[in-house]
Simulated scan of single mutants.
Amino acid sequence: MVHLRTLIFTIVMFPWMLSSAAKSEYMEARKPKTDVSISDYGDLDTDSAVAPKADELPTCLLCVCLTGSVYCEEVSPEMSNVPALPKETAYLYARFNKITKIKNKDFADMATLKRIDLTGNLITEIEDGAFSKLPNLEELTLAENRLTKLPMLPTKLISLNANFNKLKTQGVKSSAFKKLTRLAYLYLGNNQLEAIPHLPESIHTVHLNNNNITTLTDETFCRGNNTHYIRSNMEEVRLDGNPLLLAQHPNSFICLHTLPIGKYH
């Protein structure tokens, strides 16, 4: 009888004991682990938590790359250099970043480039060879930077926009545009120029407003010794905002279709 009772007790209690032990083990595993030290995980690379800089990221991860076009506008983290471009890039838009300098190597061997827009950066210097070896570059926008001089420019350039810089006369040679026989649109407004550089016959539009230009000559736009000369391509000239009295230079515009636009005193 005693053995029978023992057997019945064992049959009833053993499953309960197993269940209780399993529950205790489960609850212990769920307890939050405290007092964890760095040694519990070995040597951690603390630098891996630091966000990578723009220069360390692949261009097409940092920017938007479409077929032939790269858009790097207001990049975060801040972009301070021109990124490495895919070889087939024809159009680069790197506006409103923190680029400070354009180097010769930035566009080396980029024969496909047709348009570069660097508006709204902090560019103070452009090395002379940065653009001059781009055989197909037609449009270059450098507006809203801090340039005091222009670099050498490619001969096929059609449009140059350098409005809102700090360009000075000594930084823009009188012959800077002489060999640019396709240049049609030239924007040099809101700078510190005191003289007007030579303008090629191809020019359609030239904006020189809000500079420090004080004088003109009969040769600035026309040919003073040729009263029959007509500058047929030039359609728009802006000189407003300069310390210049147009009335003192009546022969400076006789070859143009229209007088300079803008408000003059």
Rank of each mutant, 00 (worst) to 15 (best):
V70I: 10
N121S: 11
S80H: 04
F107R: 11
N165A: 03
N211P: 03
F9P: 02
T67K: 13
T215A: 05
V2A: 13
L150K: 02
G42R: 05
I11E: 04
G120L: 02
C60D: 12
V12W: 00
K263D: 12
P243H: 02
L92K: 09
M234Y: 02
R182E: 15
L208M: 07
C222I: 01
K149L: 01
A195C: 03
L216Y: 01
A184C: 05
K33L: 12
K101L: 05
L150S: 03
R231I: 05
H249F: 12
A84V: 11
L186C: 06
G68N: 11
N226G: 02
M17P: 00
S24P: 07
L140A: 13
T89S: 10
Q170T: 10
N81V: 12
N210A: 03
L160Y: 01
H3G: 15
L208Y: 07
I99A: 06
A94M: 13
Y26N: 13
F9C: 10
L140F: 04
N163K: 09
L140E: 15
P260L: 04
F96L: 14
K156W: 07
R30N: 12
Y71S: 15
L147E: 01
P260T: 02
H198D: 14
K179C: 08
S19P: 00
L61A: 07
I11L: 12
A176E: 11
M234K: 05
P58M: 12
L193I: 04
L183T: 07
V2K: 10
M152G: 07
R30D: 13
L167F: 02
T6R: 08
N136W: 01
V75M: 09
D106P: 15
S174D: 12
F177W: 00
V172A: 05
N104Q: 10
E127P: 15
G129L: 11
T181S: 15
N211G: 09
L62D: 14
A49F: 13
S232H: 05
S76N: 11
H204R: 12
R115T: 15
K87C: 10
R95C: 11
A247R: 07
L85I: 06
S202Q: 08
M1D: 11
T205N: 08
L216E: 05
E235T: 05
K179D: 15
Y264C: 01
A51L: 11
H257S: 13
P197A: 00
L244D: 01
P197Y: 00
Y229S: 09
K103Y: 14
N104T: 08
D40K: 12
Y91W: 14
K33Q: 13
L193N: 03
M13S: 10
M110R: 14
S37V: 10
E138R: 14
E125C: 07
K263F: 00
K149D: 02
I213N: 05
L140I: 09
N161Q: 11
K156N: 15
M27D: 13
T112S: 15
T215N: 07
E88V: 09
E25S: 08
H228Y: 00
S252W: 04
N251M: 07
K33Y: 06
Y41D: 15
K31N: 10
L122R: 09
A29W: 03
L118W: 07
N209C: 03
